[in-house]
Every structure is written in structure tokens, then in C-alpha cells.
Design a protein around this nucleic acid. Structure first.
Lengths: 156, 156
DNA sequence: TGATGGGGGTTGACGTGTCAATCCTGTAAC
DNA sequence: GTTACAGGATTGACACGTCAACCCCCATCA
């Protein structure tokens, strides 16, 4: 039965590789998230928002631009900005240029949080990911990630 | 500055590869999760629980065994079993052998759900992951995933 | 007999993400 | 002008995970 469905179903070996792949990526994500949290009291979601804002002109972005930039849905961003605002990391204000639209601005405290979190985080990425792999392996990761991305992108 | 910290900080290129890697894995996970959900009204968490139970003797496992088997914390499992029980996928009952301990048993409805979800899910894994890669690339994934795993495991 | 402690499991609070519904306001259509 | 609509953002309900506190029952030991 497994044999006959070869074209549809992954083999046992393929499935093993898949599971290892996805679980390892998950483990990595969790580990890094935990470190970021304990080092700088930021979640990786916070980090993404802070990174985008800190690179933006005047540390400010339209809410919808920000959402697009980091690939989030409006609703998710709105919820998250609400929480970040409560912690004083960002502030929202009506956008002067556009009657619709909200400006999201990085506060000084948010900028400082990001600054303090950034270096340890990058160090962690090096330690947990880069250092695990040989230069050849790293190149292979790049290659097959690209293949995966190409495979997935055209799909809606 | 970036140059001087070479040993600590990833290079721009390494960082690019890292981001691609982790974001692609995330995209894949999300896509598969969405398909599983729409095909069989199961989350991947549901799936893991159902898979473990459906392979168990008498479709039943001690709660703590189940947690260990799928690598979850007790609390997570307890919450999730509560939700699954409400949907009629599993049932909990005191374990006759052991005074402590709870038996988790797959219901007929749960087994049927799993049966219906399983094949499409495996097909999706093949389509979204396996089919994107050449056999050589698949072998490379296996290899560097193993390297990553070895690198991460000894760390607490 | 009564305190101590540990394994097994649950609970509550909270942060997070998704979906669908809603609100607001300017603009096009009639 | 009023209605319709579309873009931008928020809200509420819910599923999910984590953390820390807790409950229960038993074993051990004083």
C-alpha cells in the first residue's frame, strides 16, 4: 500500500528527515526566543517590530507599512502594538499626512531596549546556528532554503 | 566595528541565511498547519496527540507517558487534552493499575478523525517539502539538521 | 502518629495569534 | 445629498503555550 502510493506519500526515510528538519528548526526558534527573553525582556515579535522601526526614517512607520514590511496581518500588529505601547516601547498617533493611517513611533525607551537586546541576540544566532555548521553546510542551507522558498512562493 | 567582532557576531551573509532558514521553516509550518486544519479540522498539536495514541496499545496511554513521548510539558498536555476531550477526540479516566495517573484513550471519533486527516497530511508533506528538493538536497538537509541537533542537544 | 516530600496532574493568569465583525472616514455613484 | 463602497485600523472571541501555584495521594521517616 505504501509502495503503490509512492508518488503521493513520502517514504519512511523522507518523513524522518522532514520531522527532524521541522522539529530542529522549532527547537532553535524556542531556544533563541528564550535567550532573547531573558537577556532583554523582549519576545521575537517585539524584536521584529523594534528592528523595523529602528531602521525607519525618524523611527516612525505607518502602521500598514510596518505590517507589510514584517509580513504580519493588520489585526496581529494592532494587538501587538497595543501590548508594546502599554510597556512604553512604541507610541501610536494619528498620521498628519494621511487622515487615515496611524504613525507608529519608537520611543526612546524602546530604542534603548532594542539596542541592549540586539547584540546578545546576534551573538546567540552565531552561537546556536552559525557555529554549528561548516561553511559548506551553511552554503547548502542557503541553497536548499532558496529551493524551498521558490517552491512555496508561487503557491497562494 | 562589525569587522572587529567577527568571532562574536554573524556576518551580514550569515545573518541573511539564518533569516531565510528560520522564516522558510516557519512558512512551511504555517502552510502545512493551515492545510491540515482545513482538510481535517485538526491542529498539528491535535495530530501529534492522535498519532501517538493511535499507535499505542489499546489506543491508550498514561498521561505522563504521552507527554514524554511527544515531548510536551504536563501543563500543556493537560490544557490540550481538556480541549480535545471537549471535542470528543479523547477521553480521560483514572488509571486502574496505578492510583496516581490518568489514562488517555482515543475515542472512535478521534481515531476516525486521525484516519481521515493522516493521508492528506502526508501528501501535503510530500508536496510542500519533499517535492521541492532533489535527493541530494534532501540528504544535505538530513546532514546539517543532524549537525544542528548535535550542537543543540548537549546544551541545557 | 504526624510532618515531610515527591510524583502525577490540574488550574489560573497572562502573552500571543487568528478569524470575523466592526468602526471610521473619505470618495465615487446615483 | 444620500447611498454605497473601500481602505485603514481596532475589537472580541477563541485557541494555544508557558509559568507558577496548587491539589492529591502515597511513602518515608522521626
Amino acid at each position: 500500500m505504501v509502495q503503490k502510493k509512492r508518488r503521493m506519500m513520502p517514504t519512511r526515510e523522507e518523513l524522518r528527515i522532514w520531522r527532524n528538519y521541522i522539529e530542529t528548526a522549532e527547537t532553535l526558534r524556542t531556544l533563541l526566543e528564550g535567550r532573547l527573553q531573558s537577556e532583554s525582556a523582549l519576545s521575537s515579535a517585539d524584536y521584529r517590530v523594534l528592528l523595523a522601526l529602528s531602521e525607519a526614517d525618524r523611527r516612525t512607520l505607518r502602521s500598514s507599512e510596518l505590517a507589510q514590511l514584517i509580513g504580519w496581518q493588520r489585526s496581529r500588529l494592532s494587538h501587538h502594538l497595543g501590548r508594546m505601547e502599554k510597556r512604553g516601547l512604541v507610541r501610536r498617533a494619528p498620521c498628519p499626512d494621511d487622515v487615515h493611517g496611524i504613525d507608529v513611533r519608537l520611543t526612546d525607551s524602546g530604542a534603548e531596549s532594542f539596542r541592549r537586546g540586539s547584540l546578545p541576540h546576534l551573538r546567540d544566532v552565531r552561537e546556536l546556528f552559525v557555529d554549528a555548521l561548516s561553511p559548506e553546510q551553511l552554503a547548502q542551507v542557503d541553497e536548499f532554503t532558496e529551493a524551498l522558498r521558490r517552491h512555496l512562493d508561487p503557491e497562494p
